[in-house]
């Protein structure tokens, strides 16, 4: 650490890794599947140790999906697909950029500070965006649904889903007819 050729690139990576772990945990993937490690050009033995240890750790965790619980594979895939879209969304990226900027300004890359910052300032925006994406995927794939069905599918609680549905309908991305929600567009 602190030996980065680019001076601060590794610090930015710490923030990305933290949001990544929080997201993985949120969608039911063991966050230990993702690691961020340091080995400088002079540390070949350390690199070998890290990679060997990591591969055994992943072996112990088991295959993605099946190891996270029975029949979880498809749902995790859906979460992750929506996650990539959320990670592309301007709102989420702005929150992330702003956090990185603020932490850089403070100069304190203490893991606890990064973790707190991500929890408070980035993760909520990310989750909301991911659920919004999942709602749209859900409506597009299965047709009109009740909000309770959506909640069950996406794993979001019913109140949270309700709020996001309202927002999406204001943006005219979904509409409600009776107790059913419809996707607009695709």
């Amino acid at each position: 650490m602190g030996e980065c050729h680019y001076q601060s690139g590794n610090y930015e990576a710490m923030i990305i890794a933290e949001i990544c772990r929080q997201v993985l945990k949120d969608v039911g993937v063991n966050p230990e599947r993702m690691v961020l490690e340091w080995a400088s050009a002079a540390e070949a033995p350390r690199f070998v140790e890290l990679i060997t240890r990591y591969v055994s750790a992943v072996k112990a965790i088991g295959p993605l999906g099946s190891a996270e619980g029975e029949d979880k594979e498809a749902i995790i895939r859906m979460h992750l697909k929506a996650g990539v879209k959320a990670a592309s969304a301007r709102k989420v990226r702005t929150a992330l950029g702003k956090l990185a900027k603020d932490i850089k300004k403070s100069g304190d890359y203490n893991p606890q500070i990064i973790s707190d910052g991500v929890t408070k300032k980035v993760f909520p925006a990310f989750r909301e965006e991911r659920l919004a994406q999942e709602i749209q995927i859900c409506l597009a794939e299965t047709g009109p649904c009740k909000s309770a069905d959506i909640s069950e599918k996406t794993g979001g609680d019913i109140k949270e889903i309700g709020k996001i549905l309202e927002t999406l309908s204001r943006k005219e991305l979904v509409k409600k007819q009776g107790s059913n929600w419809y996707g607009i567009g695709n």
Binding site: Y6, G9, A13, R33, E37, L64, L80
Partner: peptide, 27 residues
Amino acid sequence: VMCTGRIDLRFILEAFGCGADGVFTGG
């Protein structure tokens, strides 16, 4: 990559979405 700072959140999520059992980022 030239720097771990290049790694976008999308890359890691995409990798898991594509079925990676693990992602090792090393700086």
